[in-house]
Design a binder for these strands. Structure first.
Lengths: 109, 109
DNA sequence: TACCTTAGTTACAATATTGTACCTTCTTGC
DNA sequence: GCAAGAAGGTACAATATTGTAACTAAGGTA
């Protein structure tokens, strides 16, 4: 199951490079705690199944906590772990870079 | 062709999240200039075709320069653009995080 | 003349990742 | 009894991403 990595950045990329993982992490960074449905509203284009999958993977990799309340209807809250918070600077930096990239592309038509 | 992004981090992820792009960028960060064949040696598992593709995409996104010398046999050199260098801090941070993640996983067996 | 070299290209195959549509749970409100 | 609500699970379909293997260019070398 465990892969061989030739460079440590591959590990991070493995963990962060799902189609929605970056955005999910950013939102959790800004909101502390979010319920499943709230995340879904923040990412209107993601499907139920895929969102679940991305969250489970982030959980398995130790980036987020999944707190289940035994209620009906169910309530599940997600938040960053301490470990996930170590990525905050990186995520912020990636967002900034993305912002300037968009601006650059818009300038060059 | 241009996609709609709901969050700037998606832009960066789009640009950086190829299977080999992170490692390629890291190596270019440490070596300034590398020929195609040198990169290939640094990433023994990547195929010819995929490496070409990843490099072309990085070039199209403005992260790397592609310098072709009109010789036979051909000589092509790759290097980071100024723009690509803006990602250095991010890449370094991602590598560090990856390193500690590996250590953590090894501890928890 | 046959062969080596580097940085590709091309057609085709195999994987991996996402998405769609519909099913499930159990309790409260009407 | 019947629908609603939140957070999924499942089977199956559609894309997207990588990989394989073989082919090319053009000059130097044996």
């Amino acid at each position: 199951m465990r892969k061989e990595y030739s460079h440590p950045i591959e590990v991070t990329m493995d963990v962060v490079c799902g189609k929605w993982k970056g955005v999910i992490l950013c939102h959790l960074q800004q909101n502390d705690v979010l319920r499943f449905g709230e995340i879904k509203k923040l990412l209107p284009k993601v499907s139920q199944k895929t969102l679940t999958l991305q969250l489970r993977e982030l959980e398995a990799d130790g980036l987020i906590n999944r707190q289940v309340y035994p209620q009906v209807p169910p309530k599940v809250e997600y938040s960053l772990t301490e470990y996930g918070k170590d990525l905050e600077a990186t995520l912020t930096h990636m967002s900034e870079w993305g912002k300037s990239h968009v601006e650059k592309v818009e300038l060059n038509g």
